[in-house]
Nucleic acid binder design. Structure first.
Lengths: 351, 351
DNA sequence: CTGAAAGCGCTTACAG
DNA sequence: CTGAAAGCGCTTACAG
């Protein structure tokens, strides 16, 4: 019990195909063929051997197979988003899709430290993973992965993808457009935009979606987008600022660049007696549930489909590994509006 | 370029030790010895061979080595906390500590679905990982892992650990105690407790820590602990309830069972004009930064040391794998108070 | 239909 | 000091 028994990992001699062959009175090659459903042989022999394998609890050593097949059925996931909210959904989507296909994924946390990246890539190469998915936290930043040195297929998720490479990002512009179009359909006319720092690619795209939806509805643009930190604090300030004017000059809807901003902003409005959604409708971006559901009222927001992003990236990587032709370039996967209560119900009349 | 080149994973023939031996004009066994610093040989030969290996970009195939060493230098991380906040820090701590030692970790997301667990455990066995860390979201729930069937060392993190097994959990009681002791040291006398659902093990332990700190300070227990959801909503309600009485009967400090509750509670106090920390000091539990830093004022809270938990679990698992004796049972790792601004500054006089 | 042989890439006693 | 041989656990042509 306890100490000793727990540590005896070497003690457990696992059943090998040799054991199976011996027990069945056949050669190892025959056993292999029987178990892999290859070649022709009497159904009876095949089933007998399979039965014995089952009885002995035989499970083929994946590394031995990998050695001969030159295919390990493993992937590496490199991510620099160690604490953020992106990696987990992406990793979950990826790993679930891969698990169904017998491929396992190594998690490599890199901290934007090129040395650490090198070390992890090296380890992944040593372990002979079949491919790499590189996942980031900004769609406009490329991770410090020295591609030329990587001898295997790579796919990027939620990160910039170098020329000629393959990547997956959420369709930020489309998501923003659908959010604003939703506000328009509810009859809102003065739709403001409060968002993150100018430097972010996502900020530009979301702003573009906002402007496009406005122009499609022939609505004037309500002031310039307010740009600041991705924080509740900035949302709070912005909320106060947007209601500083007298009522006629206030927006009747605000599209926020992320859920944290939206939350801070709603707090500011509520504290000043402005009602959400009656006076001002608010939409966020991210569908980070812990925020979106805790705002009062619960937040309508744009879901980036991160899980699906991870899934698609994995499936594409498998295609690449199988040598199937895959077009280079970045794909934008659709976002989906998640309607809660911060915009009120559907408008009685949309035009 | 593009499609075709990206998919040609088979095209890259990696350098093998045979190539190195050939280029150096020695046998494969000699090459192996030179590269592994084993056996005796002229320094000159050794360095020559190593130089050639370097030049050819030789990296030994980890699977081939694993096959002969019966050790894969890989681990599996099973977790049912796919979206929560526990897994990521634990995984980061684990994977960082392991990366330094050349061991990689497979991420397996299981959804409390026993079938999915079985599938993942099976895959990990097929891949011949050296051990498993099983990580959960409740210290009082055992994950549906059928241990008898697992032929390798296992360590539990942030989950109940079956009799005879090895586990790591945060010291919830100690953490709670240090939080309340902090309040006491600031001169607070009427310290209430608002926490999660009764069913949770952590709830009982944190309550115990609260009571012990009070009794050590000869302070009366300020009402019974308020128990409800782990949500901002419940925190909000509780905040309103605790200040419903006239001022003399209100608490002067509130220790919350998690950061979400603390945040909702602070919102309620603030909205009612009660000042935090002047009138009532508040402490949370989790140090979930996204919450703790966004509360106004920023939240003093208990950090559970999840990263360290993951690290320790990994190191212990390695010991187990190496056959070193490890005592069975559950270890409680210390929590650490993270002081921000929701309690005010140190008291001018502590007694 | 079945099995001996060679091989995946490496390491480790064991002879020379 | 160096190399041939056997082996880790499996698969795949290739003969019988």
């Amino acid at each position: 019990m306890g100490a000793a028994s727990a540590g005896r990992s070497q003690g457990i001699q696992r059943t090998t195909i040799k054991d199976v062959a011996l027990a069945a009175g056949v050669s190892v090659s025959t056993a292999s063929k029987a178990l892999n459903e290859r070649g022709r042989m009497t159904l009876e022999t095949r089933e007998r051997i399979q039965g014995i394998a089952q009885k002995l609890g035989f499970r083929p050593n994946a590394m031995a197979r990998a050695l001969v097949h030159q295919r390990s059925f493993t992937l590496g996931l490199l991510t620099n988003d160690t604490y953020g909210r992106f990696t987990l959904p992406i990793a979950a989507g990826l790993s679930a899709a891969m698990a169904d296909r017998g491929v396992s994924v190594f998690l490599c946390a890199i901290d934007d430290d090129p040395e650490r990246v090198r070390l992890n890539v090296e380890t992944m190469e040593d372990k002979r993973v079949d491919g790499l998915v590189v996942s980031g936290k900004r769609i406009d930043r490329v991770l410090p992965v020295d591609l030329p040195a990587v001898h295997m297929p790579v796919v990027y998720v939620n990160a910039a993808c170098p020329p000629g490479a393959i990547g997956f990002v959420p369709d930020d512009e489309g998501g923003a457009h659908s959010a604003v179009a939703h506000l328009v359909s509810l009859g809102r006319k003065r739709i403001a935009h409060v968002t993150g720092p100018r430097g972010f690619g996502a900020v530009g795209l979301r702003e573009k979606g906002w402007l496009r939806a406005l122009s499609e509805a022939s609505l004037p643009c309500f002031g310039a987008a307010l740009s600041g930190e991705w924080s509740e604090g900035f949302g709070y300030e912005s909320g106060q600022r947007l209601i500083a004017n007298r009522e006629a000059e206030r927006p009747d809807a605000i599209f926020c660049g992320n859920d944290q901003i939206a939350r801070g902003l709603i707090d500011a409005l509520t504290l000043s007696g402005v009602r959400v959604p009656e006076d001002i409708a608010v939409i966020g971006f991210d569908n980070w549930e812990i925020f979106a559901t805790a705002t009062r009222p619960p937040l309508t927001t744009v879901d980036m489909g991160l899980k699906e992003l991870g899934r698609q990236a994995g499936l594409t990587l498998l295609d690449l590994i199988d040598g199937k032709p895959v077009e280079a370039g970045q794909r934008q996967l659709p976002c989906r509006l998640k309607v809660r209560q911060s915009c009120g119900s559907e408008a009685p009349s949309a035009d």
